[in-house]
Design a protein around this nucleic acid. Sequence first.
DNA 1: AAAGCTACCAAGCAAGTGCTTGGTAAGCAA
DNA 2: TTGCTTACCAAGCACTTGCTTGGTAGCTTT
Lengths: 217, 217
Amino acid sequence: MVVQSKGRVAARRPSGAGSQTLISALVAAGELIDPDSPRGRLLNAAARLFDQKGYARTTVRDIAAEVGILSGSIFHHFGNKEEILSCVMQQVTVYARVRMAQAVEAAASPRERLRACILSELEAIHGLAIPGFSILVLEWRSLSSQNQKKVLRLREDYERIWHGAIAAAKGPKSDAALIRRLLQGALMHTYNWFKPSAKGMSLQQLADEVLNVFSPQ
Amino acid sequence: MVVQSKGRVAARRPSGAGSQTLISALVAAGELIDPDSPRGRLLNAAARLFDQKGYARTTVRDIAAEVGILSGSIFHHFGNKEEILSCVMQQVTVYARVRMAQAVEAAASPRERLRACILSELEAIHGLAIPGFSILVLEWRSLSSQNQKKVLRLREDYERIWHGAIAAAKGPKSDAALIRRLLQGALMHTYNWFKPSAKGMSLQQLADEVLNVFSPQ
DNA sequence: AAAGCTACCAAGCAAGTGCTTGGTAAGCAA
DNA sequence: TTGCTTACCAAGCACTTGCTTGGTAGCTTT
């Protein structure tokens, strides 16, 4: 076996000012599932496990154990295992978009807005805001094409923000779609090598470095 | 189920002038396993399947069926399933290094050498030269840390070539290690969106675009 | 010819997998 | 009180998984 790590991990909730009320608002608006409901708790547990061990190596028994129920009881809340993955991805997508939109809005200049996008996605990837964001890329192939379409539709707005920020920062004649894709890969891959630590680089510093590579000066 | 595609796929051998003799030389030198031996044929089949469906979703029965033997017979050649993955990664690493070294050597200027690195890795990622290269990243977590170390040691020279090419092209005060990591992520992610086609962009054009983003002018 | 090696088969085991079934207890509404 | 809904349990089914075992045919070496 691989991907060690077992035993219950304390649920890491998004921390930071306002994230709680932001979630509540989204729940009230029906855009997000209440994380305190049985479904919500299962989705959070699934997100963490899929993130740690991967979808295929996570069993429904693992997920059930995380919230303290038996495996069969999961299928009272979800039709099958893949529906859990699909729901996780949809939740993550919605929340990531709202969060990034806020960060971009708070930025002053075009360059600052691009930096906000980069930092926002870095935070998501490294689990500081949205547990399970990396699943969107890492486990994309585990989703049936039908469910992929659903998530892709939800993702359109997210990508629109990115394209706008890139075009504004790098000029209209730059290929925003291409740069976004290169950036997405570069940022996602930090998941595999970057470890935020007290001594080393912070996520903010990393965001600056990335910004300087993709948009020099 | 997901990741459709079944049925035997014709073995796609690396094509291109000299690749055959290059392989033969590496086999003779004991650096590569003969692709016509039972072990070699199993490794090639495994590489394709791991690439298509992922390691966890590929069964030893799948691999065995690809080469026309029964599943149990696999364990005459490999101790366990993970050893197959480890061997595939080692084979891929060795071959990718030799290939890239050749491409870099043939290039004239520092900028051309960086382009050669980019194109070489793009070709590897998209299966034009080395079936299974993407496994190195996509299935990294499926490897035990002990086997990870083995592959990492083999990979050192490969990364050294990259760092040299980046430093030469972008100046010694650039952070070659960081840029390499961003590039690796950006290039690997093309696996998810770039489809070389007659109408659209070629890999060569893509390499040029990437070069211009990471090393403008 | 004898001995050993390589490459496989045939059969199956033990563990784990997603998911189903029938039932129960608690809360709430009529 | 009655009936409905939500959230779960207990048990297990049907299937898949990696891997094991004992054996055999053919080739090569001595």
